[in-house]
Amino acid sequence: MRQIFAIFTRSGGVLVFLILEVICLSMVVSFNKNQKEIYHNSKSIMSDSMTHGWREITQYWNLSAVNDSLSGVIAELKQQQDEAKFLKTINQDSSKYRTEDFEQRYTYTSAKVVSNTINLPNNFLTVDRGIVDGIDNRMGVFDSRGIVGIVIRSNNRYSQVMSILHRDSKISAKISRLNAFGTMVWTSIGNPRLMELRYIPKHLNPKIDDIIQTSGASSYFPGGLPIGKVKEIQEDPQGGNFHLITVELFNDLSTTQYVYIVNNLFRDEFKEIEEGKEDE
């Protein structure tokens, strides 16, 4: 008690000064018209600018949430495009097509990459969507810059994606300028930016920098997704009938964060006819 008293006598002046000054100033701004107006105006200006400044700071904190929601929106928009749809009727005049003539063919789900490898002979990614989000085996995975891989396994919450950087991956692709179909494989283990495009016949003349896209001739990916561009064209040393084309991927799988998983709603029918199975 005596110590408290001592503190008060030593710094009591400052304390009393602060208390009384606060009382005085609150009286000033509540009983005097001019000061009251100035105070309230300044207060609202101050609080506005503070709210503004605070928003400037905090908007960086939830950028990741914003990214998540944006990638969801992009997935939604992608499946509303005509490319994601199937034309049911065939009209002579293409301008006569109406909304009812289109049937949804692809749906997209956005996902976030949780883990990722690129340096192994067989690489996999894990994404944070699973069966509850409608993810199933054999769905294609791509991102805004190119294709990523194919879902091979999923549980309720997560899915494992076989990366295109995998010795067993075979992606149906085309040189868009020539419409020439081939198959993409990954042979340059250790270099995640290069793949090989096979089975482009010799009578075609691919050029350096030709764009490679998905062909659409598989059940995994819609046609026309960008993959990469031609980097190098060699003759087959064994004298085969095909070019040996090295493709530089647009996509850098080491920095992939957000991906879209594509669900082909016609997949079963496509598979059925491709594999020659018939129920009858």
Binding site: G13, F17, L20, E21, M27, V28, F31, N32
Partner: peptide
């Protein structure tokens, strides 16, 4: 009729006097 204006000034004066 200026509640607080003179008071705040003389409180300040008393504070800086020591």
């Amino acid at each position: 009729i200026s509640y607080g204006v003179h008071a705040s000034a003389s409180v300040f004066l008393a504070f800086i006097r020591p």
